[in-house]
Design a protein around this nucleic acid. Sequence first.
RNA 1: GCCGGGAUAGCUCAGCUGGCAGAGCAGCUGAUUCGUAAUCAGCAGGUCGUGGGUUCAAAUCCCAUUCCCGGCUCCA
Length: 646
Amino acid sequence: MVKVSGALEEIQSSAGATCRDILSRALSGKKFKEVVACKCDERMYDLDAELGNDCTVVDPVPLSSPDGLKVLRHSAAHIMAEAVKRLFPSAKVTIGPDIEHGFYYDFDYERPFTPEDLEKIEKVMAESIARNQPFERVIVSRQEARKIFYELNETYKLEILDELDEDRLSLYRHGDFVDLCRGPHVPSTSYIRAFKLTSVAGAYWRGDEKRRMLQRIYGTAFASEKELKKHLARLEEARKRDHRKLGVQLDLFSFSEEAGPGMPIFHPKGALIRTILEDFERKEHLRRGYQIVQGPQILRRELWEKSGHYENYRENMYFTQIDEQVYGIKPMNCLSHMLVYKSRLRSYRDLPLRYFELGKVHRHEKSGVLHGLLRVREFTQDDAHILCRPDQLQDEIIGVVKFVQDVMDLFGFDYQVEVSTRPEKSIGSGDAWDKATQALSRALDALNLSYGICPGEGAFYGPKIDIKLRDALDRQWQCATVQCDFTLPERFDLYYTGEDGRKYRPVMLHRVILGAIERFLGVLIEHYGGAFPTWLAPVQARIMNITHVQEEYAERCAAALREKGIRVDVDARNEKLGYKVREAQLEKIPFILVAGDQELEQSGLNVRLRGGRNLGLLSIQEVVDLIFQDMDEPFKKGGMSYRYLY
RNA sequence: GCCGGGAUAGCUCAGCUGGCAGAGCAGCUGAUUCGUAAUCAGCAGGUCGUGGGUUCAAAUCCCAUUCCCGGCUCCA
């Protein structure tokens, strides 16, 4: 007997029965039509796969489920490959997986594909879908597979074959296209009801920049035309939240070809926002037992040699020479923090020492990776180095992660946590790595955070925790990070005197909370869609008069609010109220305060919130209280507080 | 760094196979004094990213270059 999820009765299964047999009996015709594959014990199978004897519960995989979409998109990738081979027979196929919002397939072809090629490919795909060709799974021996792909001159497939361990391999065939593939696939091509090819891009074979560059075609597919349209509309919406666009619209920052790529220029409003963020950070770090330090912007080359940066990081560094002496412009802040530690003898009683610096760093990033504020060449890190005794490491990591948690809650971010373990090229003893890695994951466990593991992704000097945020287009960006370091204390010969009077090596953590202020601000702009919470809004309130009669009153009100520390301006232009309101809305100012005759008479202001809600006439004091209350609101959850006058 | 695409007024964009560089918004001036997302009129604004070439003639075609965009690699 087999149980089918979502069906009432158990189904009698016989030897050789396929998923299709079981599911078609268990589900209504309408429901069954939507099923593209089936799942048993978390493994997906083709609808026409035979059901193993040990399978007792079968989950149908409907088209529009996450798993169904994966199957659908992967199948669409095969259909795209078929179309490409038909149009460009000498193109060689490589791999074509489904990805988060669609699929891609990489081809090796003598010339790059053009947008016009994409249209042609789409057309041929539509034909293939209209023919409703079945996807057929064929199991062959390694020998047979080699023969097939050798005859097709699919050299990349032969390379993949050589790396597989299995003796029996599965191929999928539809029409005259065959591909080495694990599956599963939709039963036939007409299951692809809505698809679109979105872009072409170069991609290295096997992701290795030393190997050949292939042509990658991206596309997406959905269970219905409606869902595809919805997806494209969502993308369109997301583009409106793009911080590069909002940065111009809200006059926050710019880039100048004359200044140089990756060098952000902050305009008054953008600079104000980052100043508020930075002040908040200074205050919050002091509250959490950090000490603010500050080092020089350029340091002698010899020091970078000592730290290992000159050997390992030189290509990313800027240098300058003065009087025969080469200086490196700092790409990281750790060096001067080491020097602060070394400036006197340290006792075990002094530890932990937490040195914090809003340090501006320069890194020569490759030109192709620059991306608005999210990837720049000059940026400011909210950087700290914690030096502690080994027995303090665990608590220190917990403290940092808790800090990250509080701050992410303050902004309302969803974030992803990853622990990266020892890479192949690394230094330090296995024991030290194990202990540090354990300390990291234990800290996350202690705070009930779920996390992924990235094996071998750690820094060469130690394991790390990365916290990643998503931008408007769902791309992930690393912001906070906690990294253990076994080398710098060694290289700088840091030590402290223990209880027994002997020398001991302190343990060191590098950590950032926001990461880079520039990147964080970029993500923040997209997160809020430019509508900053009141505590961060560069202009918190705008007072507007209706006719020139109230102009002086409006100015008087503004002075009163400014006196309380509220960032307010006055729009006294000779324009209609509707016009001024519209502009303030577009500037996403949290409070619109109207001063008309009534307000003048009653010594108050009429309050309209950013969302459009109108609170009516309030006294000046009530307006002040309202704005303060709104500024404090986000801090309540994390037990933090912040109020600053500008 | 690599592959592809792009750059026209402050912003958003039109300008077809080479033939006088345009619109809306913003700006300035004037009129209008108005109650919650755009009042009307006029004016001004461009080395068509930069450099070279082809041509009687280049925003348009070719080459180089800078920067931007989408990916790859890398990373806060």
